[in-house]
Design a binder for these strands. Structure first.
Lengths: 235, 235
DNA sequence: GGTGGAATATGACAAATATCATACTTATCA
DNA sequence: TGATAAGTATGATATTTGTCATATTCCACC
């Protein structure tokens, strides 16, 4: 299970300026520090599960998280990822519906928890925070509408290329141009919406074409422009 | 082109109570009436186009609208629908990104337009309105995450059944249990994410199974429970 | 530093779906 | 009202993708 740790201070959180909390003043930050708690989750552990109701907002302090949904046949579908500074669980609280996704730590992660009461009090009292949240949910729609179109219209090869580029945008590349997150072929398959075997075949296809290089779970992007072309054009 | 018509009054708009404007007081409604304008769009006409930046919020007064996106190969993908009381264009304004979708009138429609300035002033001054908007965008995510999972994992037959039920939820049934919107097979195909021919075949399949009845563009839902079962279970 | 189990890889085949060709049917408008 | 286009329908075929079987490799754990 997760274990409680001393709260990191919001004011000194390196990710705050890129987060929805960027516009909070020092007084609000101190109040957040008092109200929140922080837990460590180890790799593979669930932070919350779809179908339940969250009692507050989750904010990633450290680590990488996948948000996924269980489809009709029990198959996992990865919807998005969260990294330091990203918040989770807000859609459920704002729409008063059960959580649409399960959040799972992809590596050991520390996650702050802000009680619903505090979250809603920020929304009520601070229009700038409301606007930040609105901007966030609106951007989500942008991403979702694009993903939806891709899922509906593109081949699995195109979708794989797309997802590799998406992973690059989300987690960046390390010094060797490798995507900076470790995912199993099965997890990649549940992003792309295809079978694990297909992902394996398609990845070695991309390797053969010189677009990527593979070394275990490490995926090196050799020709990003080529990947983008592949993702857009049909062959 | 669309033509300007006298503004309908927000206070007497039958759809207002189910809309994001439900919590506005009479003073706010009068201000809205003063600031907004209203246009008539005929069937097939575009209300706004993806890629452009909206100067305000669109609100459907009367008629049915489809919101769609153009995929890589120029193929249309229908993302959602809007009917009386629904607002459009907010995601783009809130995220300061170009419009993700094109809005097209499915039948003659009257659409109110609320300038951005008025929209943002409501957001800034009325926390209840902000919360309504947040609730709306959060619900959109719920819908999108489900659609995304369906697109990625379900067969085209299952997706078609799903879409028929979605249309029923959105537009309801008329006195003959027919879905109360007229869509071409091609449009249905661009919801389901498949070829027009496939939709034609699958529809006559559903008819043969006694789940629906067809009469031109009219689709009568004979066995809703059966459709729901088909949408969930793989044969 | 082996060893068992999971993850990855590859082949063969089946099923689903797209594509193309071609009727047929229904709207639309001069 | 008849001409013409658009939409609907159906068959044949090619392609993509899923599924199952079976190696092979990797890796955590004793």
């Amino acid at each position: 299970m997760s274990k409680r740790v001393p709260n990191p201070k919001c004011a000194s959180c390196g990710s705050r300026h890129k987060s929805v909390f960027c516009s909070l003043n020092s007084e609000q930050l101190i109040e957040l520090d008092e109200e929140k708690s922080c837990d460590i989750y180890s790799k593979g552990e669930a932070i919350f599960k779809e179908g339940s109701y969250p009692r507050g907002l989750f904010c990633v302090n450290k680590g990488k998280v996948k948000l996924s949904r269980t489809g009709a046949e029990g198959k996992e579908q990865i919807l998005r990822f969260a990294k330091a500074g990203d918040v989770m669980g807000y859609n459920s609280m704002l729409s008063n519906k059960p959580l649409a996704a399960t959040a799972t730590a992809l590596e050991d992660a520390s996650i702050c928890f802000i009680p619903a009461k505090e979250f809603f009090s920020l929304l009520k009292d601070d229009p700038r925070f409301s606007l930040n949240m609105l901007e966030l949910t609106a951007k989500n729609w942008h991403t979702a509408s694009r993903l939806l179109t891709d899922m509906a219209q593109k081949s699995s090869k195109q979708r794989l290329a797309e997802m590799l580029l998406w992973l690059k945008e989300t987690f960046g590349l390390d010094e060797d141009d490798c995507i900076d997150v470790k995912l199993s072929r099965e997890e990649i398959a549940s992003m792309v919406g295809t079978a694990t075997e297909a992902v394996i075949r398609l990845l070695s296809d991309l390797k053969k074409k010189g677009l990527i290089h593979l070394d275990g779970k490490k995926i090196q992007l050799v020709d990003i422009h080529g990947l983008a072309t592949l993702a857009e054009l049909n062959d």
